[in-house]
Design a protein around this nucleic acid. Structure first.
Length: 952
RNA sequence: GCCGGCGUACUCCAACUGGCAGAGAGGCUCGGCUUAGAACCGGGACAGUGCGGGUUCGAAUCCCGCCGCCGGCACCA
């Protein structure tokens, strides 16, 4: 490889005979590859761990949401965030920080498996090929990652520790009193010692071995349960709530999802609902993401109230946020799946039962059975689509505890088993859903909050004084909603009929999938239930099997059963193991973990990627992640996490949950994984369709005034739409193309300069040339295009140049820190334009800071120019210019002069002039004096350094 | 329906705690040079901040009411 410093000769093909040393794509390519090789060779971006030289510097841990290595490679939208973190990391490294920045791959998951099924290759082969391709693409961009720390979730050495963490969660329970997770061994010890009562009241010693096991299992944070889950026949797997869209379809593939009772692995994330919600206040995250998480966790305060059932030894417990409306409860509703339904249904309809209530059935049992069957057949989608109120009377009556009234109990699917207690008291006067149901079934409506005068609506949910709300003992009448809630709750508590509670919408996390390409569980089954494998049996490797395709079904076949591909690996599944009580036969767990598992902790593995003793060494974790005692309430964690907003509730909630468990167990020192989160915008693109609606190649579309749409493709008018970049939309632009046409430095600079990081914006290939021109001008200012000689002068820059230089330095520092790369780039362009216009050789004392400031954005050309300026070492570790205060203050200031807020004139005054002097100068200025014509202004406002406003 | 966010030249975007609406890029246009018809050099034009009020000496910025767009949640009791 030819090295080219000083007056070296070019190997790059030149466009022009006159300017063989011009900066262009070919030269950029040569420079970039050479420097990338050198960085790799010298380990320039290795981040020292505690104890290693360099670790005494202040540390910064920057993190990107690691990509899923898809088969189609990167398009120009993907690296936006990666480049953004890289710019910050390079800037911080140059200013003296120990920066940790690494990149890994989230490589388990559905698409690899689906692609593998289509092509007949093993998912591991396609995944590894994709990772190689991604690494090439990312390396080409000159990202300053520590290459030693790259991990993929599919590496056996990585998922071994994913399994290890699973076991820690499995071996834990949540102590509600101490509000933290603890090992189940401690729970068992408390039961055995009698310091913690056993739910059924018996002493521990009287429990059989299996009873003890069931009891402990019921406390675990990872547990198996038979519960309603989201079954997606089209994908052949069950899904977490977070993976199902609002309209009851799978986020991936858009297949219908059905609620089915299935035995699956769950994680008790609900135990952490309060901490997950409360600790959001301690995070430096975008408000929108915090709002989404709060919304998902769904904390609401209210009361639980018991309603005794007439003639049955049962109570219906409801949750309500409006206990103040209890006097208006005129009926009750149980969810169709509610277990109490069977117990309360009487043998026959009460006399005079309204015909509308029976569903035409002869007995309540028949009516309920028919209704339940119909409800079970409905997909989530059907249930969402029709909001008409349906239901049947159970034949049972319940007693309203506040007034002793017997009210009818219905079953209706507008009440969901998964929220609250699965039962409600219905208050049509103050709830529109109940109002609709009451209208449909002819039920009474009592208002207990007075609506405002002239109220035309139906249910009134707003504020107002309570009415119709008293019994012999207590009266809410006249109280506002908040006071009424307090009073009636106290009254219920006093009567033992209710209690104040906090309710969450969040449900436990469904953690198993019927997939091949995921982490196997470190669990085997004996004839009784699950048995954890000891740590020294890890990793449980994914076996190679011939047929790894998931068993999928007709998307609407709700009654099908999930079938994990691993269940076909019979030799792997049936094992004989000695787990401490002699060799026994076991059956391995054949489900695999969801894709989210690896991403719940990968950021910890970057810290200590090759450790065989720890998932992360505690000392290393403390160095990079610990809480900052100088910041009150700081939870610790990654210093900056950058990624798209699409993971607001999925990955970001799951990772917080795992991290908190690890914190409770003493495995990490930080309470949160990501102390600061930043959502970068998306790069979007135009797509074009021809009159038949088919997408045409966006690159070949031209603006055309003769086309009714303004755009044409091969002479055909095409319609433009704006959105994502995608293969099927035929508008993909790849970083590879951009690097080939302009170079990585130009591409990076373009992406950073079109707008602030958080803003989504359209991709525009033709604009990229602007960034190329700037780099070309910088190059031309420092390198003779004809001879290749570096040309800077040793002359002192003039004062104007020095002022601009130092203003630029100060501004660029602030911009980089604030992630305002677009304005940093603008300031550098401005400085360079100034140097160009000066028309003289650039003074070295200006050229060097310019090159250094450019380095975070366009590192290769900066390194090259730095070397050509005579420096042997990389600029990756600085120096970075520091602004000189003396040159930040202007000598004189031009004050705009406003008259009554309108700009009328200007006056130039010495920078150190005081307020009076500025005022005097302004009033003496010719146009202002003329306007005043001898009158005294009513008022003169002088804003030092800003402007003068004369009020007449 | 509820909760977020955003509206500035033709386009993408600047404007610190209210203080000269314009930093930067593209496009357009004129000229130079010319091998430059998306990579050359130099010059130029183009808006008054979605709409209507209010506060203020002064509002893109703060407040109120609309309009439009984007995102999230949604039979959650």
């Amino acid at each position: 490889m030819s090295t080219e410093t000083g007056t070296g000769t070019s190997t790059a093909p030149a466009r022009s005979a006159d300017t063989p040393f011009r900066y262009g794509a070919a030269r950029a390519d040569e420079i970039e590859r050479r420097w990338q090789e050198r960085w790799a060779r010298e380990g320039t971006f290795f981040a020292p761990d505690p104890g290693e030289p360099g670790s005494e510097r202040e540390k910064v841990y920057l993190l990107d949401m690691f990509p899923y290595p898809s088969g189609s490679g990167l398009h120009v939208g993907h690296p936006l965030g990666f480049i953004g973190t890289d710019v910050l990391g390079r800037y911080l490294r140059m200013t003296g920080y120990n920066v940790l920045h690494a990149m890994g791959f989230d490589a388990f998951g559905l698409p690899a498996e689906q692609y593998a099924v289509q092509t007949g290759t093993h998912p591991r082969a396609t995944t590894e090929a994709n990772i190689v391709r991604y690494r090439e693409q990312l390396t080409r961009l000159g990202l300053a990652h520590d290459p030693r720390r790259s991990v993929a979730t599919t590496d056996v050495d990585f998922y071994r520790w994913t399994q290890w963490i699973f076991l820690r969660i499995y071996e834990s329970w949540y102590d509600d009193e101490q509000r933290r997770a603890r090992p189940v061994a401690e729970l068992e010890a408390e039961f055995a010692a009698g310091t913690r009562p056993i739910p059924d009241g018996r002493p521990w010693a009287e429990l059989s071995v299996l009873e003890r096991r069931d009891l402990i299992d019921s406390f675990r944070l990872a547990y198996v349960s038979e519960a309603p889950v989201n079954w997606c026949p089209g994908l052949g797997t069950v899904l977490a709530n977070e993976e199902v869209t609002a309209d009851g379809r799978s986020e991936r593939g858009n297949f219908p999802v059905f609620r089915r009772n299935l035995k699956q692995w769950m994680m008790r994330i609900t135990a952490y609902a309060d901490r997950l919600a409360a600790d959001l206040d301690r995070l430096d995250w975008p408000d929108s993401v915090k709002a989404m998480q709060r919304n998902w966790i769904g904390r609401s305060e209210g009361a639980r109230v018991q309603f005794p059932v007439v003639g049955a030894p049962a109570q219906i417990e409801v949750f309500t946020t409006r206990p103040d409306t209890l006097f208006g409860a005129t009926y009750m509703v149980l969810a169709p799946e509610h277990p109490l339904v069977e117990q309360i249904v009487p043998g026959a309809w009460p006399v005079d039962t309204d015909a509308r209530w029976t569903g035409g059935a002869a007995t309540p049992a028949e009516a309920v059975a028919a209704y339940r069957a119909a409800a079970a057949r409905k997909s989530e989608l059907d249930r969402q689509e029709s909001r008409d109120k349906t239901g049947v009377f159970t034949g049972a009556m319940a007693v309203n505890p506040v007034d002793g009234q017997a009210i009818p109990v219905f079953v209706a699917d507008y009440v969901l088993m998964g929220y609250g207690t699965g039962a409600i008291m219905a208050v049509p006067g103050q709830d529109q859903r109940d109002w609709d149901f009451a209208e449909a079934f002819g039920l009474p409506i009592i208002r207990t909050v007075a609506p405002p005068a002239g109220w035309q609506g139906e249910a009134y949910t707003g504020e107002g004084p309570a009415i119709n709300s008293h019994n012999d003992d207590v009266s809410l009448d006249g109280l506002d909603v908040a006071d009424a809630k307090r009073l009636i709750t106290d009254w219920l508590v006093g009567r033992g009929a209710g209690e104040a509670v906090v309710q969450y919408k969040l449900r436990d996390w469904l953690f198993s999938r019927q997939r091949y390409w995921g982490e196997p569980f470190p669990i085997v089954w004996d004839e009784h239930g699950p048995v954890p494998l000891p740590d020294d049996r890890l990793p449980v490797e994914l076996p190679d099997i011939a047929d790894y395709a998931p068993r999928t079904y007709d998307p609407d076949a709700a009654d099908t059963e999930p079938e994990p591909p691993l269940s076909r690996a019979t030799e792997w599944v049936d094992v004989e193991l000695d787990l401490g009580d002699g060799p026994r036969r076991y059956r391995r767990e054949t489900n695999t973990m969801p894709q989210w598992a690896g991403s719940c902790w990968y950021y910890l593995r970057y810290l200590d990627p090759h450790d065989e003793k720890f998932f992360v060494d505690p000392e290393i974790e403390r160095y990079w992640m610990a809480r900052d005692p100088s910041r009150p309430g700081d939870p610790g964690g990654v210093d900056l996490y950058v990624g798209g907003v699409e993971h607001a509730v999925l990955h970001l909630l799951y990772a917080r949950f795992w991290h908190k468990v690890l914190y409770d167990l003493g495995e990490v020192s930080s309470e949160e994984p990501f102390r600061r989160l930043f959502n970068q915008g998306y790069i979007q693109a135009y797509a074009y369709t021809d009159p038949r609606g088919a997408y045409v190649s966006a690159e070949e579309v031209v603006e055309d005034d003769t086309s009714p749409t303004g755009f044409a493709w091969n002479g055909t008018p095409v319609a433009r739409e704006y959105g994502k970049m995608g293969k099927s939309l035929r508008n993909v632009v790849t970083p590879d193309e951009m690097c080939a046409r302009y170079g990585a430095d130009t591409f990076r600079l373009y992406e950073m300069s079109t707008g602030p990081m958080e803003v989504s914006r359209p991709w525009s290939t033709r604009d990229v040339v602007g960034s190329q021109r700037f780099l070309q001008r910088v190059w031309r200012n420092l390198v003779d295009e004809a001879t290749g000689e570096t040309r800077v002068s040793d002359a002192e820059p003039d004062d104007d140049t020095l002022r601009l230089l130092h203003r630029t330095i100060a501004g660029v520092h602030a911009d980089f820190r604030a992630l305002h790369y677009n304005t940093a780039a603008a300031k550098l362009i401005e400085l360079n334009n100034h140097l160009t216009k000066a028309g003289v050789a650039v003074p070295r004392s200006v050229a060097e800071p310019l090159v250094l400031m450019l380095a975070p954005l366009s590192p290769h050309i900066a390194e090259e120019l730095w070397a050509r300026l005579g420096h042997e070492n990389t600029l990756a570790h600085g120096p970075f210019p520091v602004a000189d205060e003396r040159w930040l203050a202007a000598e004189s200031i031009e004050y705009p002069i406003q008259v009554n807020g309108k700009l009328r004139s200007r006056v130039t005054v010495a920078a150190d002039a005081d307020r009076e002097a500025v005022q005097a100068a302004a009033l003496a200025e010719a146009r202002i004096a003329e306007t005043l014509a001898g009158r005294e202004p009513r008022k003169v406002i002088v804003v030092p350094g800003r402007l003068v406003n004369v009020v007449i």
